[in-house]
């Protein structure tokens, strides 16, 4: 036991100060990978007017030019010590790391947030960006309720149903009006926010935690949007529908878990 503690301390001593570098890499790598988004003519997602168009060669070009960053991020993540993260509160950036990892620590949250992006892509503009803008704000409102101790019944059921419903929306390519879609997504966001808010640790740097938490949520939406944009490629529509089906199945499984 003593030896294990010593090893842990050594681990922290060696790697504990590297949080900032790790955070920078984790943020820089996806950004560097997506740098071509800034070039409307060359990027993977070129937006003209109100229509977005996927450039077929864009992804290949991005992978070719930005692969060192992606590899670097992968290596950094692989080498980063989990033992140091276990004591995240000891360092100001610990709040950031804990917040960044929290939304991706649960599959039910991950699939629901990716499904928001997928559904936005299926609905097209302006829902493509209205849903990812509305979700974090309403989710934070739910988090506020959770932090204040305002009870919401059936939070886990609501989270599971969110995955099921949004997965089915993507699977069957349902296109309700914008306000209805925003209402559905916002209603589910309250459940997700409430669960996260109730879990916000007391010892963390709260704002860094919250900020990282929101950024991860936004990145998950972005993943969903990018996956959804593959509908413009041959076979992409079936792929997105299959992804929606998977989300619905995961939601169904979590619903069964929540009800039993």
């Amino acid at each position: 036991m003593v030896m294990a503690t010593d090893r842990l301390n050594d681990f922290e001593g060696d790697y504990g100060a590297d949080y900032d570098h790790l955070i920078r890499l984790v943020i820089a790598a996806p950004w560097a990978f997506c740098t071509d988004l800034r070039c409307p003519r060359q990027g993977v997602l070129s937006v003209q007017g109100s229509r977005s168009r996927m450039d077929r060669n864009g992804l290949r070009r991005m992978a070719r030019t930005n692969w060192p960053w992606a590899w670097l991020a992968g290596v950094a993540l692989a080498l980063s010590p989990a033992a140091a993260w276990a004591h995240a509160d000891a360092h100001p950036s610990g709040g950031f790391v804990a917040g960044f990892l929290h939304p991706i620590s649960g599959l039910d949250h991950v699939v629901a947030m990716v499904a928001v992006g997928l559904w936005g892509a299926v609905l097209g503009p302006p829902a493509l960006w209205v849903l990812p803008v509305a979700f974090p704000m309403v989710m934070a409102f739910g988090g506020l309720l959770g932090l204040l101790g305002v009870p919401i019944p059936g939070v886990e059921i609501g989270i599971a149903v969110s995955g099921l419903v949004m997965g089915l929306m993507v699977l069957f390519e349902l296109r309700p009006s914008l306000w209805l879609a925003a209402l559905i997504v916002s209603a589910f966001a309250v459940f997700h926010g409430h669960a996260h808010g109730a879990e916000l640790p007391a010892g963390s740097n709260a704002l860094l935690y919250s900020l990282a938490f929101v950024i991860t949520t936004g990145l998950l939406h972005l993943v969903g949007i990018l996956l959804g944009e593959t509908r413009r490629w041959p076979g992409g529509r079936r792929f997105v529908q299959a992804a929606g089906g998977c989300v619905a199945l995961v939601g169904l499984w979590f619903l069964e878990q929540a009800l039993t």
Binding site: M137, A140, G143, L144, L200, A206, L207, F213
Partner: peptide, 9 residues
Amino acid sequence: AASLLMLGW
């Protein structure tokens, strides 16, 4: 969103 969460905290 981050500010709202911070507010609750």
